[in-house]
């Protein structure tokens, strides 16, 4: 008999549900994005969106997977890190489902899930992972039982830096186009590099000063918007590539995995690929469907953990807003 896990992801603006088998077959992966009328993500408004769409997304996932709720063996949910109201909404849905069906609940770390789905969907086995999104910027690799953080942002995430700049600049989005993609489109037409602060401190990066500098240049109106986008991209991508390179040289791993929403950017891909080639390392980029926040990654990581005896009793299922990647014991990797 096939065993199934349903995973719920709700760390930020997406409410997503995925269903996988215990053998890693992905049967459903549905994402419902909360799109604000203006500005960034308002946590409570996003949470309201999640609550509204939850039952529809779950029903649709079960339909896609061709199974009934009673066929599920476990429920996995992203327990952190993320925005409080969003996380709590997903957790509430997960607890309800698990107790109603009388099956185990497994709390999953969102960052671990990004790495695990990468290992499932690409050829990598033991990579240095660069995870870049609107909420996270983390360079990690497995060592002694955990995914260790080798470098990260000291302030805002790289994707957030691009988003805020795009909003400040009033860049025009076509329907459904993420801000990062708009910046990429403008940057492709830029030619002139405008100096911006390049802040790598040891293994860590800082983007907030750079963002402020870029916005003040924008407001002065002396530069072409295309050149500013180009300079912004070149600078922030060079920074993350440098930190990823340091981690690769230090760990002597042979693979690099690029994931997260920003992984879709072609310029970032080409930089990481070029760096990996210089170190004779294999480069893998996640397909977009599984690079962005998704439910399949939560379901699959829930399966891996559950097989090693991890269950999260309801009374311990409180969400962890600042749950760090390296706090998780990764029992399933040897």
């Amino acid at each position: 008999m096939e065993l199934y896990c349903l995973g719920i992801e709700s760390t930020a603006d997406d409410f997503a549900v995925g269903i996988t088998t215990f053998n890693g077959k992905i049967l459903a992966n549905i994402i419902s994005a909360y799109v604000p009328m203006e500005g960034g993500i308002h946590p409570r408004k996003a949470a309201r969106h999640h609550a509204r769409v939850a039952s529809r997304v779950i029903e649709e996932s079960l339909k896609n997977a061709g199974i009934k709720p009673r066929n599920l063996s476990i429920i996995a949910f992203s327990q952190g890190p993320g925005l409080g109201p969003c996380l709590r909404t997903g957790a509430t849905v997960a607890r309800t489902l698990a107790s109603y069906l009388g099956i185990p609940l497994v709390g999953v770390n969102h960052c671990v899930a990004h790495i695990e789905i990468g290992k499932l969907k690409t050829d990598v086995e033991d990579p240095v992972t660069l995870y870049v999104s609107g909420g996270n910027t983390i360079v990690s690799a497995f060592d002694s039982g955990r995914y260790r953080v080798f470098g990260e942002t000291l302030d805002i995430a790289l994707g957030n830096c691009l988003d805020v700049f795009a909003r400040e600049a009033g860049l025009h989005q076509s329907v459904g186009e993420p801000f990062g993609a708009v910046v990429e489109r403008y940057a492709a037409k830029g030619k002139r590099l405008i100096p911006l602060p390049y802040t790598v401190k040891g293994m860590d990066m800082s983007f907030s000063g750079l963002l402020t500098a870029a916005i003040s240049l924008l407001k002065r109106g002396e530069h072409k918007l295309e050149d500013l986008c180009y300079s912004l991209q070149e600078t922030v991508f060079s920074m993350v590539t440098e930190v990823t390179e340091r981690a690769l040289a230090h760990t002597e791993k042979e693979e690099v995995l690029l994931t997260g929403g920003v992984a879709a950017n072609k310029r970032l891909q080409s930089m990481i690929r070029s760096m990996a080639e210089e170190h004779d390392a294999e480069f893998c980029v996640m397909p977009k469907e599984f690079a962005v926040d998704n439910g399949a990654m939560i379901a699959w990581t829930g399966v891996l953990a559950y097989k090693y005896g991890v269950v999260t009793p309801i009374e311990e299922s409180v969400v962890k807003l600042k749950w760090r990647l390296e706090e998780v014991e990764v029992l399933w990797v040897k």
Binding site: L193, Y198, E234, T235, S238, T241, E242, E245, S270, M271, I272, S274, M275, E278
Partner: peptide, 9 residues
């Protein structure tokens, strides 16, 4: 020199 970075950067 790092090939991934623009020469001027």
């Amino acid at each position: 020199p790092k090939k991934y970075r623009l020469p001027e950067l």
